[in-house]
Write a protein that binds this DNA or RNA. Structure first.
Lengths: 226, 226
DNA sequence: AGCCCTCGTGAAAAGCGCGTCAAGAATGCG
DNA sequence: CGCATTCTTGACGCGCTTTTCACGAGGGCT
């Protein structure tokens, strides 16, 4: 399900959007300030952000930049200001669309469909990847051993494995992994990586001490080798 | 260069957009009817389409559908009609953005930047460079010998090799290399360069004693010769 | 020709990153 | 509210990477 983070300080707008979006089958999370938005996005990355520019604590473009620093999630900006310079500033800060209030809910929904439509083909079903004697299905988040038993992974283990498997053969830097899995602010905690990489190898690799697929590139990062 | 197809039946708007977009460094092609637009797009696919909905021959959404039938090129719609149903129809037909006339050129340009920004990472030039009997893939961070075995490089070796390979044929001064790889304050440690250049040649060059690609320019620096 | 500077090479010392074990804190579930 | 799972944090030894030192060869300059 598409997960949308709605950021607005006006309770009635927040309420109206939440109801409308939920009715359309979206998974809605809300935040009523810039700081709360950044925190929510970091702890649980959404698939799309609807952001009101008139927030009490942070300037809207600051919030956009804060998000863009580590994620490419689509951002649709709502604003009461129709000025050209405001639009340009928000769009160049990294927003994908800019809707001027008052706006029709139909229009916002159509724009949400437009930007999410672009995203869908970005993940062109990579159905079955092999790691050792296991088959990993990213679509329905399952790992099956060749003997038929299932391997259970925790959310963090999944996030890390998925990041690696979605870049087959490519080096994923430690910083990138930490940012994508734990969020910005964790770039230094390389011990997390060692911890969870060991867990993944224990579960997936044939010989955890001599990994053949989940490869360490010393000093740089990790790599999934098909 | 980004190639933009502008579709509008009003000559003065066509002219204004062409001039403005050209001035911004875009490659502009124009069409004054829906039929002409479809034909132009087919014969020479653009990177982006700016489409006025009020065309004489075809309905705007028809043009969008005609394009969407075979291409995912971004489409920004211009329209004099601010009605919600028009926007929804155009966006759901496959448009990426909808701008209501009269619009500021600055805003249109910002929206063009916003949609093209999404496209850029789709074509990240994959530079596969050759050094001796090895293929260096800077994107994946891999070095593969012609016999299929992988060559492992340490972070410092990578940093140095990358700096040279990203400037093919160009001389990279010792100072520049030292600053980029080790940081400022190491400009005098030319022995590092000798040390690591020897390591790279040993791993990559056919005959490390007689390098053919990683060339020393005595007294100045090093050069990668393709 | 002789000198000096720079480059290539080898080898040893120092430092750091990685894997691993272990235990406490937080979270979710019944 | 108690239990189990998961996440966070700390510590340690080993191996590899980096750093440092030393020496010989080659080329340019006076």
């Amino acid at each position: 399900m598409t997960r949308i983070l709605v950021v607005d300080d006006e309770p009635q707008i927040l309420r109206a959007l939440r109801i409308n979006l939920r009715a359309r089958g979206y998974d809605v999370e809300v935040a009523d300030s810039g700081a709360a938005a950044l925190k929510a996005a970091a702890s649980h990355p959404p698939d799309l952000v609807v952001l009101d520019l008139g927030l009490p604590d942070l300037d809207g473009t600051e919030v956009i930049r804060g998000l863009r620093g580590w994620t490419t999630v689509p951002i649709i900006v709502l604003s009461g200001r129709a000025g050209s310079e405001d639009k340009v500033a928000a769009l160049d800060a990294g927003a994908d669309d800019y809707v001027t209030k008052p706006f029709g809910v139909d229009e916002l929904l159509a724009r949400i469909r437009a930007v999410t439509r672009r995203l869908a083909p970005a993940t062109p079903a990579v159905p079955a990847l092999r790691v050792g004697r296991n088959t990993v299905d990213l679509a329905d988040r399952t790992v099956t051993r060749d003997d038929g038993t299932e391997v259970r992974l925790t959310p963090t283990q999944w996030a890390m494995l998925e990041k690696l498997l979605r870049n087959p053969g490519k080096l994923v830097s430690q910083r990138q992994l930490l940012r994508d899995v734990w969020g910005p602010g964790y770039e230094q905690e390389t011990n997390y990586l060692r911890q969870y990489m060991a867990q993944l190898r224990r579960r997936l690799e044939d010989d955890p001490a001599r990994p053949r697929h989940l490869i360490t590139e010393p000093g740089m990062g990790y790599r999934y080798r098909p």
